[in-house]
């Protein structure tokens, strides 16, 4: 898989990364989009952005990923970025229980701002820190089941499951979109190339709808 974000793609999906400060959102993003990890990364102030394309069922799916500041005060700015998102990774740190306990608040916040069909995954990051772990995999899974979301444990540092997590979310979005197209009586193939897909059944205008990416 190439790490370049090509301009040539079939689908463009907007995905957000949310979760408490310091859980590793920015490193998950840089691991996925650039295959980079930094122990000395700066805290994210406001929002950051990166993109990467992957292949799903012979289609090129491009993820446009927004990485947000974790501190509550910044939600005044970051919550605007939830709009139009069709996928979200809600991240916690398996070595810090508070970040796990806050997941429900993050999920509520997300559901208040995004469409009900948005694909959500709970991600327990820093799984490499085995001796410091305080949130068990079972607890993570149980919460994901209760909240009806996907679940994955990752390590941005060891590059464990990072591609897997993003790919699963993007593939699921792709399926939601395909199903929706079928329900609507359309063949997937006729969806306009390069247009951002909104998974909303009401066809609400996605924030990025006009983002036809060819140039």
């Amino acid at each position: 898989m190439a790490y370049m974000s090509d301009d040539d793609y079939d689908y463009l999906f907007k995905v957000v990364l949310i979760g408490d400060s310091g859980v590793g959102k920015s490193n998950l993003l840089s691991r996925f989009t650039k295959n980079e990890f930094s122990l000395e990364s700066k805290s994210t102030i406001g929002v950051e952005f990166a993109a990467r394309s992957i292949q799903v069922s012979e289609k090129i799916v491009k993820a446009q990923i927004w990485d947000t500041a974790g501190q509550e005060r910044y939600r005044a700015i970051t919550s605007a970025y939830y709009r139009g998102a069709v996928g979200a990774l809600v991240i916690y740190d398996v070595t810090r229980n508070a970040t796990f306990e806050n997941l429900e608040r993050w999920l509520k916040e997300l559901r208040d701002h995004t469409d009900s069909n948005a694909v959500i995954m709970l991600v327990g990051n820093k799984a490499d820190l085995r001796h410091l772990r305080v949130v068990s995999t079972e607890d993570g899974k149980a919460l994901a089941e209760r909240e009806n979301t996907f679940f994955m444990e990752t390590s941005a540092l060891e590059s464990m499951n990072v591609d897997h997590a993003f790919t699963e979310v993007l593939t699921e979005i792709f399926h939601v979109v395909s199903r929706k197209a079928l329900v609507a009586g359309d063949a997937v193939a006729v969806l306009p190339k390069g247009q951002t897909i909104s998974v909303s059944m009401e066809d609400e205008v996605s924030a990025l709808k006009k983002k036809v990416g060819c140039c």
Binding site: K42, I45, G46, V47, F49, I77, A80, A207, L208, K210
Partner: peptide
């Protein structure tokens, strides 16, 4: 506006 760019996307940071 056409590209849906606003200052919070580029004028924020550390």
């Amino acid at each position: 506006s056409e590209e849906m760019i606003n200052p919070s996307m580029y004028a924020s940071g550390s």
